[in-house]
Design a protein around this nucleic acid. Sequence first.
DNA 1: CATTAATATAAGCAATTGCTTATATATTTT
DNA 2: AAAATATATAAGCAATTGCTTATATTAATG
Lengths: 108, 108
Amino acid sequence: MASTVQLTSVLKTLADPTRRAVFERIAREGEVAATYLVQGSKVSQPAVSQHLRALRDAGLVAERREGRHIHYRVAPKGLGPLLDWLGHYQTFWAERFENLEKLLKESE
Amino acid sequence: MASTVQLTSVLKTLADPTRRAVFERIAREGEVAATYLVQGSKVSQPAVSQHLRALRDAGLVAERREGRHIHYRVAPKGLGPLLDWLGHYQTFWAERFENLEKLLKESE
DNA sequence: CATTAATATAAGCAATTGCTTATATATTTT
DNA sequence: AAAATATATAAGCAATTGCTTATATTAATG
């Protein structure tokens, strides 16, 4: 029953393009250490660190410490509040939804 | 092929709770004149007007003038960039996606 | 233990945001 | 045309945001 607060935090967190790019890279690569996210990012190490904190606080990523590296991965439930919310607007995107449906079937 | 810019604007626009509440009310009520959105909103008329402008600029609502009233309705394609983007993360929410799938089928 | 490496925190700053009040622009009504 | 109604715009302001540089913390290594 994802609260408004959670949904707001997910949306705000994903709304920043730099931060969203970090999220997308984590999603693509599976598990990435922060250092590697800093390499290949336009912004500084502290900036990346702050984005990672925001992503974690929003429940969008989880972390696993391994020595002095911290590996980030996408938290499967993180997008939950957003998906729940979108569920209420199915009537507005039913068509597109069926496209996704097709994609999903093809991918298995 | 919804650009990053469009996605960012959709996310930013929906991220504000007051503005999202306006959008939700338009969605629920089908077509609503701005005046009625002002009534029942915590914020002032100009604030609502600014939110409506933001929603329109993001492509989330469309308007229809009728005399001195302007009626707002949800723009079906508005959520497109968001849905397209989510399509890339199916693997992370496939399960939840199937729930939505079920709901969709029940609703027709 | 001292140094290096990985990450986080602090402080400061310019830009953006969301609101307000005041005023402008339509449009209808009298 | 004047008054009333519906909506938009302008200007200003406090709060938030995303970044920076500088410094701390945590962990591995020589």
